[in-house]
């Protein structure tokens, strides 16, 4: 007699994870190497500023909103911050997730208590719905919304909801819910390199590039 939930969990922890990991890692490597390999023409003009320092600085300064923009689009900015910080806390500071990273690459760090993690998850989920509302309420942004955007929204939501249900055993078999949580993360991993989720990696390159261009010209960025 087999337990289908257990079999699903072992498939999620075994073959499915290997497939997701391969697509995730190979996809990111492909995208990053391709961008770097494209290169840019050498700028022969003498630099008026320090492009490297300005590029590095811009990676961080672009995380701070420009003056007046928070008041102009509060849901987008505040919701965006809450979602990103909540997701970061839930993924990187929950004990079982740290054990996962430790198992993968042998690096670990202290974790937070469950109540903080779950609060972060709850706020993130609320922020995601607020962001969806703001997007759909605005006719321009609604018209610009593509299938890719909706998919990314759903794939970002699912791991948090399934993780919350699995840890709290809100409903369903605990083994099944854990399997569904892991599978939802694997879906996110598979989609990551080929959707806007890739910004989690390319934002560093893009910000550095923009900052370095301005820095070379001696302008602020």
């Amino acid at each position: 007699m087999n337990n289908p939930y257990f079999d699903l969990l072992m498939w999620a922890r075994g073959p499915a994870f290997n497939i997701a990991l391969f697509i995730f890692v190979a996809g990111i490597a492909l995208r990053v190497v391709e961008i770097v390999a494209l290169g840019r023409k050498r700028d022969l003009a003498p630099a008026k500023g320090n492009p490297v320092a300005q590029g590095l600085k811009t990676i961080f300064t672009r995380s701070v909103p420009r003056k007046g923009l928070v008041a102009y689009a509060p849901i987008t900015y505040i919701g965006g911050y809450i979602f990103h910080m909540g997701f970061f806390v839930a993924f990187f500071l929950f004990g079982p997730h740290i054990a996962f990273i430790d198992g993968l690459i042998g690096v670990s760090w202290p974790n937070l208590s469950r109540v903080i993690i779950e609060s972060a998850v709850a706020l993130s989920v609320l922020a995601l719905f607020a962001l969806l509302y703001a997007r759909m309420a605005d006719p321009v942004r609604r018209a610009l919304t593509t299938f890719d955007d909706c998919l990314v929204w759903l794939l970002s939501l699912l791991p948090m909801v399934t993780g919350y249900v699995a840890v709290n055993k809100l409903f369903g078999d605990p083994t099944l819910m854990l399997a569904l949580h892991i599978l939802s993360v694997e879906l996110l991993m598979i989609a990551f390199p080929f959707t806007k989720l890739m910004h989690a990696v390319t934002f560093v390159m893009a910000r550095y590039y923009n900052g370095a261009i301005q820095g070379r010209k001696g302008a602020q960025s």
Binding site: R13, G14, F17, A26, L30, F100
Partner: peptide, 23 residues
Amino acid sequence: LSVPAGDFRKVGLAAVAAGAVAG
């Protein structure tokens, strides 16, 4: 329970190599 059960390190290294070559 949260750690994958397969031989994921080899898969990860192969993915880095395959992705870099494709890139």
